[in-house]
Amino acid sequence: MIRSEQQPHHYRTHFGRPDDGKTGWSIWGTGAYLPDRRVGSEEVSRALGLDPSWIERRTGIRHRHVAAPGQAASDLAAAAAGRALRAAGVAAGDVGLIVLGTSTPDELGPSTACRVQALLDAPRAAAFDIAAACTGFVYGLQAAVGWLGAQRGPAPYALVIGVEVYSRFLNGTDRATAALFGDGAAAAVIGPAAAPYGIGPVTLGSDGTRAGDVLIPAGGSRSPASQATVGGLGHTIHMDARAVRDFIGEIFPRLVDEASEAAGIKPADLALVVPHQPNPRLVASLAAAAGLEEAQLAIAGHDVGNIGAASLPYALHRAVRTRRIAPGDLVLLAGFGAGVTWGHTLITWPPSP
């Protein structure tokens, strides 16, 4: 059922809702979109008054992509979703749900997912956003699987998308954020899968007492836009870099341990671990603490930076395209982000039809 962009396939029939206890849900196809403009870390380092190699040495990020003027989150998301649909061989008209994770929506309302629905021409789809920051894709999977399982009769497909246009919300003089963030989108089509393949239970969590670790403080109901908030850069990302680094160092090994224990396996049994990667070098350095070999990690942030809710699905998409995943492989998705939020799910990768 899994098809990359390089392996298009077209399906002529709907599968029924998996109500026989022998079928579930899995990823049929993935897609991604990066804006054309690519900015090197040397350029960003110089703009910050740093040594040209400073960013790459500390983060591993070589490049990031920046949206063009007038290019919004919905534009990036629709492009990625369209590619995922083509990879899956699914028509937009057969999509019943669009779930979109983002911290940088087109506007405060309506949902960016509704904008994407219109761009895709997916009239059957219900559409909504999820505000779980960089964990948005994992939260979106839970929403999609729950919705698909509740449908009566033939179930249409679901689209789960992660997208960010962080470049519109950066303080160019703040090395903690300007060095890391980029723009991009990635998406996955969710459809039926025969047992034992498919998406396992999705485990989610959050700790709202740490909501101030990473945030855009102005623009909402607590601090609406004003001359003061604009002048004070309240509409840019504010991040406590030390707190975030400590959170990543604690949560990533914990997610791997929890998922492995729940599945009755060892971390070494995982064919691939796809983490969120706000700092590729930092995440890779945690492999041993998580009981993993670095080769088990799908790291794709070197050339895109931190693209938030799109980071994890983008890395997954790259793994699919480069054929790092084989049928029957155990693939762990481990997300974490602002809120703070976290989530994980284990996928038993299905074979192609």
Score class of each variant (00 low, 15 high):
G82K: 10
A122K: 05
F128K: 00
P154L: 11
S74D: 03
D129V: 00
T59E: 13
A155S: 14
V145N: 01
L85V: 06
G109C: 04
F137I: 05
S74H: 04
S74R: 13
A143M: 10
D121S: 15
A150T: 14
L76P: 08
S74C: 08
A143Q: 10
G89Y: 08
A84P: 05
D106H: 06
V138S: 11
R124P: 03
I161N: 10
R86C: 10
Y157N: 11
T104F: 01
Q142K: 13
R152W: 11
V163R: 02
E107S: 09
G70H: 08
A87G: 13
A77K: 09
I61E: 09
L97Y: 05
D121N: 15
A122S: 12
G89A: 13
T135K: 12
R168G: 01
T104N: 00
L85I: 01
A79N: 11
G153N: 11
S74L: 08
L120A: 03
L50A: 10
R115H: 11
Q71E: 09
R64G: 12
A72Y: 12
T135A: 12
F169W: 08
A88K: 10
T104R: 03
S53V: 13
F137P: 08
V99W: 00
T102I: 05
G136D: 03
W147Y: 02
A88E: 07
Y166R: 08
P156K: 08
I55D: 11
W147F: 08
H65D: 09
A126L: 15
P156R: 07
P69W: 14
E56D: 12
T59G: 09
V66R: 13
G93C: 05
G93M: 06
A84L: 05
S103R: 06
D75G: 15
F128H: 04
L159S: 01
R152Y: 15
G70E: 10
A158C: 01
A81V: 06
R62L: 02
T59C: 10
A133V: 04
Q142A: 15
D75M: 07
P110V: 00
I61C: 08
D75R: 15
R115G: 02
G101K: 05
I55N: 12
A126K: 15
R62W: 15
A132L: 04
R115N: 12
R124A: 14
R124V: 02
G89C: 09
A131H: 10
A131L: 14
R57Y: 13
F137R: 03
L108S: 15
L119A: 09
V145D: 14
T102Q: 04
A158T: 01
R168A: 07
A122Y: 07
V99C: 02
D94H: 03
Q151H: 12
P154E: 11
L141N: 00
G146I: 09
S111W: 00
A73P: 06
V138Y: 09
S53T: 13
A144Q: 05
I130Y: 02
Y139I: 04
G101M: 04
